[in-house]
Amino acid sequence: MVVRKLPSGPHSRRAPSEDAWARAEVFIFDVEGTLVDAMMPTLRCWRETFAHFGHDVSLAELHLLAGMDGGEMLTQLLPGSPKTERKDMLAYQGKHFREEYLSHVRAFPGVRALFEELKGRQRKIALATDCDKDQLGHYLRVAGIENLVDAIGCGEDVKRGKPAPDVVEVALRRVRAGRKPAVLIGDTPFDAQAALKAAVTPLGVLTGHFSAPALLEAGCHAVWRDPAALHEALLEGAERAGEPAEASAA
């Protein structure tokens, strides 16, 4: 599944052709919810964290802000709450997630094949994620992509998470993107907002349980079902252009 309609709002960037995104030289990926199936575990962990501190917040309320910097999310959901409480909640959530959820998170199908395809086309691959390095290490292992990533920006590198562009800008610097055309693939509207602020073209996948219209409205130029569908779109684009697809490495 791919949604080709471009958004008409202020964040719309009409490309010269439908598959112009495929000619980008730098592909930046969000991780949680985009490459690994972490959305629902993260939401459940946050709901349990709120309950532990005496707050009743539904999964639906949490999902509306999924992908947002944790501190900013707490400020929006608990306006006027003490800063010390928010700090304690962030620490508790991180510890609880590592103890109860992290080991159960698995990669979405097709992630390694997608990365192999991009490397075969001589594209640069970077990650821009708000998670910490120890969590990211687990995600890289379960996706089998440790040797396919050129640069990483993660939560420990920045003070502000998405929708601030900081972690995307770190990834761009480390991958030495320069003026090369770049795209960012993410699963939430906050990924798209961060990409636009960093002057990167946003693309979306539906693996974070946001609708295609929501992602398009946030600025995504196109939306796919999942990483495997994005891989299929790359192959189809190469066929239309008369270019043989690169064979994936074993």
Rank of each mutant, 00 (worst) to 15 (best):
A24R: 04
E232S: 05
K119C: 08
L140Q: 03
A126S: 14
K133R: 15
C220M: 10
L64N: 06
A233T: 05
K95I: 02
A38E: 07
L114A: 03
S8C: 12
A182C: 12
V170N: 09
G71S: 07
T42V: 01
A245K: 03
H11W: 14
C154L: 01
A22P: 00
R23D: 11
L78A: 02
G186K: 05
L43N: 15
M40I: 13
L59Y: 15
F190V: 04
L235M: 11
A107F: 04
A249M: 13
G144R: 08
I145C: 01
L74Y: 00
A51V: 12
E236T: 04
L203D: 00
H221R: 13
R225L: 15
A107N: 14
L77D: 03
G204H: 09
M68E: 05
R141Q: 13
G204D: 01
G54W: 10
G70S: 12
K87V: 07
A182S: 14
H11F: 15
S248G: 04
G144L: 11
L62H: 14
I125D: 11
E32H: 11
L172K: 13
L114C: 06
L184C: 07
K87S: 07
R179V: 10
P79F: 08
G178H: 13
S12L: 05
G71W: 04
G161I: 00
S211W: 13
L140N: 01
M40R: 15
F53V: 09
G219P: 03
R179I: 13
L62A: 07
I185T: 10
Q122L: 12
G144V: 10
G94D: 04
L234P: 00
F29S: 00
M89K: 02
L62Y: 15
P181R: 13
D30R: 04
A194E: 05
Q76D: 03
S103Y: 13
L65F: 14
S17W: 14
P244K: 11
P41K: 09
E116G: 07
H221P: 02
G80W: 05
G204S: 08
A222C: 09
K87G: 01
H63T: 02
I145N: 03
E117N: 10
E61V: 05
D19V: 12
Y92P: 02
D187E: 11
R14P: 04
A250S: 12
R112P: 07
E243Q: 10
L184V: 07
V3K: 02
D150K: 08
D56E: 15
M68G: 02
F190Y: 15
T75P: 01
A192S: 07
V26A: 07
D226T: 06
L235S: 08
L230P: 00
H138A: 07
K162H: 13
Y92R: 00
L172H: 11
A22D: 04
L35F: 14
A20F: 12
